[in-house]
Nucleic acid binder design. Structure first.
Lengths: 190, 190, 190, 190
DNA sequence: CATGAATGAGTGTTCATTCAT
DNA sequence: AATGAATGAACACTCATTCAT
């Protein structure tokens, strides 16, 4: 039921997954407790359903990442990916947070998260190798750091904890990542 | 009481602040509920006490950050700071997570976190300016991204979610940050 | 929910408001803790709800008090009022005790009690003035003493602490009050 | 230990017997929990010890009640007794309340209260019979009502719930009782 | 005699989940 | 399909009482 999906997303975003009460979700969806349990086995089951959607979004995002060279085109491609990630985070933030912060014990939710992040990580790693940078002995370390930075910055942006203009933040991030991970030379961004 | 501090840290780290039960902490400290409430007003009060210690540690860490130039010395200084941060995170991870993830409503805990992170952020920002890099229109954005990456990578390391050797991770992080934030040229690390 | 009202009244009467456990009430009502908190915010909230009902009863009782002269008709009217008070006390004793003994901090409960007792006190004071007795410099003192005696005697009757036949007690009270407060001449009651 | 007696009395008076915490008493007496349990088996035991003192006071008071005729001398004697009761209530209010309100299960405390009130009741009853009044079929009913009024008025005075000058209250009470219980004729008090 | 840190049984309250309608 | 009243296990917190020093 769409109403419950949306309400769940909203309440999870506002209160956080653990603090979110089924009652809040049900009221936000203008429906009843009975209906909730008609569609979902429990609160975690709703998160799981949302995780499926989110994982699909992120996988599509990963597939769309083009070559990222050290030049201006690479910068633009990177900027595009970051922008896409922000969009997805805005919608599925609580799910992504649950993955990153290990908030749920559920194996299936975990699996979906690992799969989605692996897809993005693998693509970014591939793009790094194409760019010829020998950034890390262990590529996983680099990709992990990159994803970590992305998630946290997005959380800070979404939760209004970081009072920075979104465009400025994206430019800054893109430049840092372009240089730090893709070996672009120092100097002003395009 | 040291026993409760340590037990609190341990349980918060294992279960997370919100999921942590006073009962878990009390059992981990091999003491009683009564004793817990003899020393702390409630669970949040314990977190607050831990936050005070953590903030002191981080402030000291910030004060110790020397100049970070684009050369090998700068790399080493950066590596040293990262190593210090890992040590503090290993001990006070739950407190730092509570700060970053906005888990508590308490004003005082928040204030301590903002103060500590501002101290580090200000010092790093200063070092970036000294390094002559014009990394970002908005320095706060850069520093925010840097701190975000640090926290998340450390969480991943501490919670064993990232199966990467710690030294490799630190080298990778140092290189990325050295290039991305301090304008060091691409190339192998020293 | 009627079940909880009645059970609350019963348990408050048996154990006293403070000693009464929510668990006792819930068990007496043959329902669950959850249900209790579905209808009342807490134990005090139940007392508040009961106080509303009691205050209504007492206000009606006050409105019904007719003229009380020094003659036999006055005696009968007084007897009627006392009988009505006994009935209300039998039902709402714990609420009235809470008012008299200042057992709760809640402003609203207090207000209800003051209002109800003021209604009765004002009416009785009026009847005393009509009876032409100049009983006290300060009418409030007389009315206060009267209400105090009433409440305490009723408590003693209701709690079985006073092993006296109710009719005898009411006759005695009526005679005492008729003489002491309404200036009826000494002599046997009608 | 005198300190604990006084502190107990004070705290019982302020918070009420049930709400009074051993911790409050101990702090008021500027001593320790250990010391408290050195002298008293528990909180109730302290009340019991205070009850012994109070019962002695009341018995003495009862013994001192002289003849109460319908004349001015009777009024003065009654006034003297009431004044004495106020003094005792001021000191031992919590004990007397505990008796009247049946706050404790302890048999011994109960027994002391019954004994003390019986002593006063018996004496007053005797004085009523001497005064030739045939107030009640059941003298116990009359005495009960009298004692009830006394206790409640004193509580109201002591707890500042009744904002009436003490002397005015005593005059009013004396007049009411003189007329209502001892058959004095209506008219202004001496 | 005196202390006060430690205890743990007991209490109020919350909230995910069920099920009769 | 939809409802929402009812449930009870689980949790935070209190405070009378003990006992090693």
């Amino acid at each position: 039921m769409r109403k419950l999906f949306d309400a769940g997303m909203r309440v999870f975003a506002e209160r956080g997954y653990h603090a979110a009460r089924v009652d809040d979700i049900v009221r936000a969806a203008r429906t009843s407790h009975g209906t909730f349990y008609l569609y979902f086995a429990n609160k975690e089951d709703l998160l799981r359903a949302l995780a499926v959607e989110c994982a699909e979004d992120l996988t599509k995002l990963a597939d769309g990442i083009g070559p990222i060279g050290p030049d201006d085109d690479g910068y633009e491609e990177l900027r595009r990916f970051l922008s896409g990630f922000v969009t997805t985070y805005r919608r599925y933030g609580p799910v992504i947070r649950a993955w990153m912060e290990d908030q749920v014990a559920d194996r299936e939710i975990d699996r979906l998260g690992v799969k989605a992040f692996t897809a993005i990580g693998a693509r970014l790693g591939e793009r790094m190798r194409e760019a010829g940078v020998d950034i890390a002995e262990d590529e996983r370390a680099a990709v992990g750091a990159l994803m970590a930075m992305l998630e946290r910055v997005n959380y800070a942006l979404a939760s209004k904890r970081m009072v920075v203009d979104e465009d400025v933040m994206l430019d800054t991030l893109a430049r840092i990542i372009h240089r730090g991970f893709f070996g672009a030379p120092a100097g002003p961004a395009p």
